[in-house]
Write a protein that binds this DNA or RNA. Structure first.
Lengths: 164, 164
DNA sequence: AATGAAAATGAAATTCATTTTCATTTAGCC
DNA sequence: GGCTAAATGAAAATGAATTTCATTTTCATT
């Protein structure tokens, strides 16, 4: 299933990797948790991805680097990464929890094909303004939002035309 | 959990109820399915709600009207209602599938409190324009979208201030 | 470097919403 | 009324998410 990220396509530089690790370690320290090789490997693997990964997909990638790391650890680490803002869950129509990393990325949104599940990112500064405005109006302290557009992509339209 | 709908607060009139039923029955006929008392009861119960209901919550409401209707039937009927556009799934942060009815309702979005789960609706014509524009730009046939803003509501801010 | 308490790990078990199965009942066309 | 396909609902199955627990590891303190 294609899930294009349309910018920031360079792999993370050594410095930005280190910066992200520092954020993670600071968070661990703050909540009294420990620094382990597994967590290190999982964070690095996650930062190298460009897609929207389920826990299982990340687990498979992690396993390639260290076959001894278990699914449970990946699951738990992904939660920790969400807590400190390095990862965030994106609700996809298949209902499975999917995460993307938020390190050094512009705020963006997703357009998802309801046929094949492919997703494309788009950018919309208006939405960010809207978040502020609506929050103010209803006296919410708005912290984040989530915006997806669903539809049928060009490829799937072509395919369905061929069939009918 | 409070889930305010901020407009359209009147219960459905007899006419609009009938109109919705007609949409449903037309859909059933189209796909070769039958009209049953259970489906009738479930649709009526659903239209009377104002909230974002999980399948189980709707099942409990339906059971009050007819204790012989099973969970499975509610589950299946909710799917049928989604197919014909009378219901639509709203992704909430608790991960459970929640539905709201779309009959005679303005297009709206949700602001959700990440603390207590309370939700408030808001309206934003800009977002509808955005759906069209972005669809055009990436050659998607955009059919729907989903937009939530997350934050902390006034009540929860007050409560957390009291604690700290 | 050794110690020990607290935390981490990972395999397995559990939970729980969702979905499917299947035997029985019902709708609605002839 | 009879017939056939569909509906029903209880129970079982599924599968992602989460918890348990015995073992291992981290790391602050000797």
């Amino acid at each position: 299933m294609l899930q294009r990220r349309i910018d920031d396509h360079a792999p993370p530089s050594r410095e930005s990797m280190r910066e992200a690790q520092e954020i993670f370690y600071r968070h661990l320290k703050r909540v009294g948790l420990k620094h382990t090789d597994q967590r290190d490997t999982i964070l690095r693997t996650f930062l190298e991805t460009r897609d929207h990964l389920s826990t299982d997909e990340l687990f498979r990638l992690v396993r390639k680097k260290d076959a001894k790391i278990g699914f449970t650890t990946v699951y738990r680490t992904l939660k920790l990464l969400s807590e400190c803002g390095l990862a965030s869950a994106v609700p996809f129509p298949d209902g499975m929890a999917r995460y993307e990393h938020q390190f050094n990325r512009r705020s963006h949104h997703h357009m998802v094909c309801t046929d094949c599940g492919a997703s494309v990112e788009f950018f919309s500064p208006e939405v960010i303004k809207l978040e502020e405005e609506v929050g103010r109006k209803y006296h919410f302290d708005a912290t984040r939002h989530n915006f997806q557009i669903y539809g049928v992509c060009e490829d799937c339209r072509k395919k369905s035309r061929r069939i009918s």
